[in-house]
Design a protein around this nucleic acid. Structure first.
Length: 458
RNA sequence: GUGGGUGUAGCUCAGCUGGUAGAGCGCCGCGUUGUGGUCGCGGAUGCCGCGGGUUCAAGUCCCGUCACUCACCCCA
């Protein structure tokens, strides 16, 4: 991996094969569930991007080089263009603009680069790829779609067996808001913001902040911490919340919704991708109104969430209708780059070629090209050796690139093909020979020693 | 955007109170002239991140800058 511009990561070919394998698999899973692909433009009017809140610092503004050659750059206005910093807000705009041509509920996936102007560090980039799924309806979105997006993303993550163990944490904003109102917190938003820091600082410190910043009594703060400590892989969290003795109608709604998501995902949960209720998840003060998701990766807890989302009931509205939605977004770059940097994930080869056709002499090139073309016609990625070096050098050429097979043409006798990993060399007919299916495409290899694949993340 | 740490060969790193750059791995060649990997022998690694300053002399000290990284902010 080379990095020349801060926060704009670039991959080597072998790593790119891994990224492509991930993107291909995500697409397969999303499409298996009937999600349609949408791509939105990279740039949006600044006013559109800022609808979500005060995140103007994060947006990269677009300006033509010749726009104001002799002057200072113009102050950004609402007509200025900015690069999108996520896929949800542009999608909301897209839904409103194309509502007349879309079928609701609309189930779509969207895999694109996004840009944020934040200071880069491990797992935080200025240019990165997100893989989003959302379901949006007109006016009313049935709750079972909250369950659906969780299930689809859990299944997509489970289909990437080379990742460390993951924990999909689910909570519900109605649940915690109802709880905070039930204890008569003076500033519900402040409580939520403070509780959200639990993954960064010890519970005692958060408890102190709840008193000083959110205006709670020590008893109220203690209740909030007890709520946030509740985690369960089944619906047993409900009785543990009741045991805290707090009552509010909104709390009951939230408990019911969270139970539905956890029950709906029960069959999917595994040691590699665990789905849990986690009542510490709050998601700051975003546009989420119900279900919220975060995802942590074993051994990489300090990265924060690699896959987040939730329910948003009023993000998009055109005056006549509202378009409530629920979605979840996977940070593909945040997921993969740390694994690459630590050497935990690597592609089996740096080229697509499964076969290198050895070249005996330059005069034989036409024949070797024709032979390669026959293999390609049967779907076997094949290249011909660059120069007629000694066969040892040609084998080494293949080895360096991870090409598993070298084909030795023969003018008279049968051709031979060698698996250079085992050294086994056999006679082969170019009209029928096939490599094993797992060698047809580059594979993703893991370093099995250091990846915690079966222990759930903390 | 604010503050801290780090930057030497392709990689991992060593380099003392300033004296003109090293190791291991990898790479290249030969042994093996159409079959790699093991082994043996030999060889090359380099704007010491970049720019400026102090000094007779800077990889080493100072300033700036860029990059990586950590914390904050925020989040995928």
């Amino acid at each position: 991996m080379t990095v020349s511009l801060s926060g704009f990561p670039e991959l080597l070919p072998a790593q790119r094969t891994v990224e492509l394998a991930v993107l291909d698999q995500l697409r397969v899973t999303f499409e298996l569930h009937g999600f349609a692909s949408v791509e939105t433009r990279s740039a949006e009017p600044l006013a559109e991007l800022l609808r979500k809140g005060e995140i103007d610092k994060e947006v990269y503004v677009l300006r033509r080089l010749q726009a104001a050659p002799d002057d200072e750059p113009p102050a950004p206005s609402s007509s200025t263009l900015g690069l999108h910093y996520d896929l949800t807000v542009p999608f909301a705009r897209y839904v409103i603009e194309n509502a007349g041509h879309l079928e609701f509920p609309l189930r779509r996936y969207q895999i694109q680069k996004v840009w944020r102007g934040e200071r880069p560090q491990e797992g935080r980039y200025r240019e990165f790829t997100q893989a989003d799924i959302d379901v949006v309806a007109r006016d009313v979105l049935p709750f079972h779609h909250d369950v659906e997006v969780a299930r689809v993303m859990a299944e997509a993550l489970a289909s990437l067996p080379f990742l460390p163990a993951l924990r999909l944490q689910v909570n519900n904003r109605k649940l915690i808001e109802g709880f905070y109102r039930g204890i008569v917190a003076p500033d519900v938003a402040a409580v939520m913001r403070t509780v959200d820091k639990l993954d960064k600082m010890p519970a005692k410190a958060v408890g102190a902040l709840l008193v000083t910043e959110a205006g709670l009594s020590t008893e109220q703060a203690d209740k909030c911490l007890q709520l946030a400590a509740i985690r369960s892989a089944d619906t047993s969290f409900v009785s543990r919340v009741w045991a805290l003795g707090v009552a509010h109608p909104l709390l009951d709604v939230g408990l019911g919704e969270l139970s539905a998501v956890i029950e709906g995902c029960a069959g999917l949960s595994s040691r590699r991708v665990a789905v849990q209720a986690d009542l510490s998840i709050a998601r700051g003060l975003d546009y989420y109104t119900g279900t919220v998701f975060e995802t942590r990766m074993a051994g990489f807890e300090q990265l924060g969430s690699i896959c987040s989302g939730g329910r948003y009931d009023s993000l998009a509205s055109d005056g006549r209708s509202t378009y409530p939605g629920v979605g979840i977004s996977l940070g593909v770059t945040r997921l993969l780059m740390p694994l690459f940097q630590r050497g935990l994930l690597v592609g089996s080869r740096s080229v697509p070629s499964a076969v290198l056709v050895a070249l005996p002499t330059e005069q034989a090139r036409a024949g070797c090209d024709a032979l390669a073309q026959l293999l390609r016609a049967r779907g076997i990625p094949t290249e011909v050796a660059a120069t007629p070096q000694k066969y040892g050098k040609q084998i080494r050429y293949a080895e360096r690139r991870g090409i598993p097979f070298v084909w030795f043409p023969s003018a008279d006798g049968p051709h031979e093909v060698k698996d250079i990993r085992t050294g086994e060399q056999v006679a082969a007919d170019f009209a029928t020979w096939m490599p094993p299916a797992e060698d047809l495409r580059p594979r993703v290899l893991v370093n099995p020693v250091t990846v915690k694949r079966d222990e759930p993340p903390q």
